Computed example of a mutant assay.
Amino acid sequence: MGLSLPPRASIDLVASFARIRDDRVEIVLAEPVDVLDGEVWAELWRLRGEDRVRCSLELASDGDARRYVVSCPRSVLGDGRWGLSLHNADESQRVNARLLVQGDRPLCLLWGARAGASRPPVPFRDRPKPVAPTRPADLLPTPVRRVAGTVRRRLSRSR
């Protein structure tokens, strides 16, 4: 079983998301740790390919909550996984997340810059067969079996 915590990132990955609004893609990056100054933009690049897309980047604030909103036309993003980075004139900052685009399906913001290792599923015919209980006592819950074993041992000693 894998770890369910998000990987380390410069944004709150749990509260961040991607959506389609009208004919545009919006990626909302919640609670950025480092805020870039000056003229800022974002860049999406296809992880398997040469495509790069420059996107607008806005910093929005609601009281104490801050978020970046990345926006670009939906028509410029083809199907696949896209990496994301934030830029200003002096520096760039990779976001530890990927955007998954699949036709007309909803967009998905994936955690991590890369996918973790996966294991192929075990075919049904190769899965271990469950073992049927051989004694009636095996059907009892574990605490009841422990007590029954203790009683049996004490009775055998008293004979």
Rank of each mutant, 00 (worst) to 15 (best):
A30N: 04
G78H: 07
W45K: 05
T150L: 07
R46F: 06
P128L: 09
A115K: 12
I27W: 07
P120M: 00
R154Y: 04
C55I: 01
V151F: 12
G63S: 07
S118M: 01
T150Y: 03
V53P: 05
P106G: 02
D23H: 08
S71Y: 05
V25G: 08
R54T: 06
R98S: 11
G63M: 03
V35P: 11
A42I: 00
S156R: 03
P32E: 15
A42Q: 08
A148L: 09
L29S: 04
V40D: 08
P7H: 07
R52T: 14
R146A: 11
R119G: 05
A89Q: 07
G116Q: 14
R67M: 04
V70Q: 05
R153N: 14
P123E: 03
S118Y: 06
V28Y: 07
V131Q: 14
L100S: 03
R74K: 11
R153F: 00
R145C: 12
D34C: 00
D22K: 13
V70M: 03
R114T: 13
V76T: 15
V25A: 10
Q93N: 03
L44I: 06
S61D: 09
C72P: 02
G38N: 03
G2M: 00
D64K: 04
R74A: 14
E50T: 12
D126Q: 10
E39P: 00
R52C: 05
R94M: 03
